[in-house]
Amino acid sequence: MSETPILQIQNLSKQIGGKTIIDNLTLDVPRGEVFGFLGPNGAGKTTTIRMLVGLMSITQGKIIVNGINLSTHFEKAMRHIGTIVENPEMYKFMTGYQNLKHFSLMMGGIKKQRIHEVVELVGLQNRIHDKVKRYSLGMRQRLGVAQALLHKPALLILDEPTNGLDPAGIRELRDYLRSLAKNEGITIMVSSHLLTEMELMCDRVAIIHHGKLVDIKLLKDIHKGEGQEFGNRLLFEVDQPAKSAEIIAVYLPEVRIEPTETGVSLSLQREQAAEINLRLVQAGIKVYRIKEITTSLEDSFLEMTRGEQIV
């Protein structure tokens, strides 16, 4: 049982008014990971998530949560899911505690002690009896996480959780989610269009575009880049790029060299980099700096979705 993915999406499609929003999407979310769901605006992230949590009907396909089919056993399947879809809206005329009590009564079987536990978990002890209308966005976000965790779900689904948060809030949420995954063993699925965020937060990302799955990547893979076997890709910033390229070509004829406007870039081992630097300097070329080029998720992402019309 524990080897089966916590969430299986099989051939999922959604049509609204004859238009296909999600097209035959199939993917598994493994247990215990922070799983990113990445795509440009309008790619179908929110629609997919809304289908996952029962806010939208499924046109075709299956969603299986912890081995339970969501469409046929909605109540049973939803017991395993906690969610915040977009902003965590709460009842503003009630206190944080009353809000949590409200949701715990809806689910049943949640003791008072559990409410106190989640309040402590999200660090809202001091303000929990204040009315929600007096909360900052960051505090509302935490209260949102608290209500999602009340029934001890195995899977936490968050749609664009960093929307509207300031950099400090984003960082706080990110650290917080990572620690939830690590310490509580909860699988977390996060959607976002913010690439750098996903890079910092996730173990694995699925990239979707036009409602189709483009790729699933372990983030380690992305960081490796294409030239890994040759070492790191380096940029030499020099005053005479063309002459530099010639010099390097004599020393390392088998390496692909890309001249740019301000220098040359190529993949090198550690020792080779020092050697090239020496040769360039000896040939009277000014080397301003040597910089490592990392292939970020952003590059991969843009590469994958490049050239396609964004509707």
């Binding site: 806010l55 939803m78 017991r79 977009e86 809206e89 709460m90 009842y91 809806m106 209500q147």
Partner: peptide, 14 residues
């Protein structure tokens, strides 16, 4: 209008 419908309908309740 409050947006809380999302929280209501994502409970394990029909």
């Amino acid at each position: 209008s409050w947006g809380t419908i999302k929280l209501l309908l994502t409970r394990p309740l029909k």
